[in-house]
């Protein structure tokens, strides 16, 4: 079509629509679509791109009272301070450890649960288990943290069970959230409790696409329950597992904020504090915006790199989840 237009108008050089002219002509033609999308692009700019300007704060010794031109520029000083700061290195360690633990635990438990659900013979029972295990996903982290706190408190059900089973004596109840080194495990277990059912959805959907005749053939050949799981179900969802795993590695710097903030306390702070909490404390409580922004910016930049790598690798493994 386009070539037709060009040949037709090539003789009349003055009328030949240049790229820009064509663009504006189309823009006017599609003014309704422009009107429908541009306000939201402006919204996007205001709320998602403008804040990036705040990153300049990381290279300043920011004083809220001063205007932008009056700020003192300090180069990479804030970053140099961060990486020699023991506290920042600790929150970096905590961030990576917690997201790593959550990633592995989340994956393993969800895949196992999906396999077990798939082995159920009763569809109704399967539905019931699914519905019940989805429930904690719909609780806010505020509610979930409150529930986890009371479950783990000295008179909570875990201590009651430990006493009844004879593992500890009455009077020796364990204050779980007061033990710094247990925090990563508690957070991992809490996250599994909240999300295990929900995380099975994708795997169950993938399992449902496996050709049933494969199972029949395997059974003919005398393959038992576990062999069928191992040789048919797991390979059948392997690509989904790999893609999701890679994509989630892109989120390694995002260990979440709510759970750590809500479950953290003075006793376990050395293990519960992550980059987000560090940023919030420096920024909003101590008004040291520059250092806080430097910490947050470091996190964001590493995240972008990880996400780009993860998405590209995932695409190579056969498409990605969203993009």
């Amino acid at each position: 079509m386009e070539s037709n237009i060009t040949t037709a108008t090539s003789s009349v050089t003055s009328n030949k629509p240049t790229g820009l002219k064509l663009f504006f002509r189309k823009l006017v033609q599609q003014r309704m679509l422009v009107l429908m999308s541009v306000p939201f692009v402006i919204w996007l700019f205001l709320f998602k791109y403008m804040p990036l300007w705040g990153w300049t704060t990381a290279f300043q010794k920011y004083k809220p009272a001063r205007s932008f031109s009056e700020q003192e520029w300090v180069g990479w000083d804030q970053f140099n301070f961060l990486f020699s700061d023991e506290r920042f290195l600790r929150v970096l360690r905590n961030t990576l450890a917690m997201s790593g633990i959550n990633l592995i635990l989340g994956f393993v438990t969800a895949v196992i649960l999906a396999l077990l659900l798939n082995e159920l013979r009763s569809v109704i029972f399967k539905r019931v288990v699914q519905t019940v295990t989805y429930m904690p996903h719909f609780l806010s982290w505020v509610v979930a943290a409150g529930i986890i706190q009371s479950t783990l408190s000295t008179d909570g059900i875990i201590n009651v069970l430990l006493i009844k089973l004879g593992f500890i004596d009455k009077g020796n109840e364990i204050l779980f959230l007061g033990i710094p080194k247990d925090f990563w495990g508690i957070l991992g277990a809490g996250t599994v409790w909240k999300e295990i059912g929900w995380n099975t959805i994708v795997y169950l959907a993938a399992i449902a696409t496996i050709d049933p005749s494969q199972y029949e053939a395997a059974e003919m050949d005398g393959a038992g329950r576990f062999r069928r799981m191992w040789h048919i179900t797991l390979p059948g969802i392997r690509s989904v597992i790999i893609v999701l795993l890679i994509l989630n590695i892109g989120n390694l710097m995002q260990s979440g904020f709510e759970a750590q903030y809500l479950l953290g306390n003075g006793m376990n702070i050395d293990y519960s504090e992550n980059i987000d909490i560090f940023v919030l404390k420096y920024g909003l409580e101590q008004s040291n915006f520059s250092l806080a922004v430097a910490g947050g910016m470091f996190k964001s930049v590493v995240s972008i790199v990880l996400l780009v790598i993860a998405n590209n690798v995932a695409k190579r493994f056969g498409g990605s989840r969203v993009f």
Partner: peptide, 12 residues
Amino acid sequence: YINPGIIPDFLN
């Protein structure tokens, strides 16, 4: 991909 972070969002 791009997340400005808590403080830049707050200032904005």
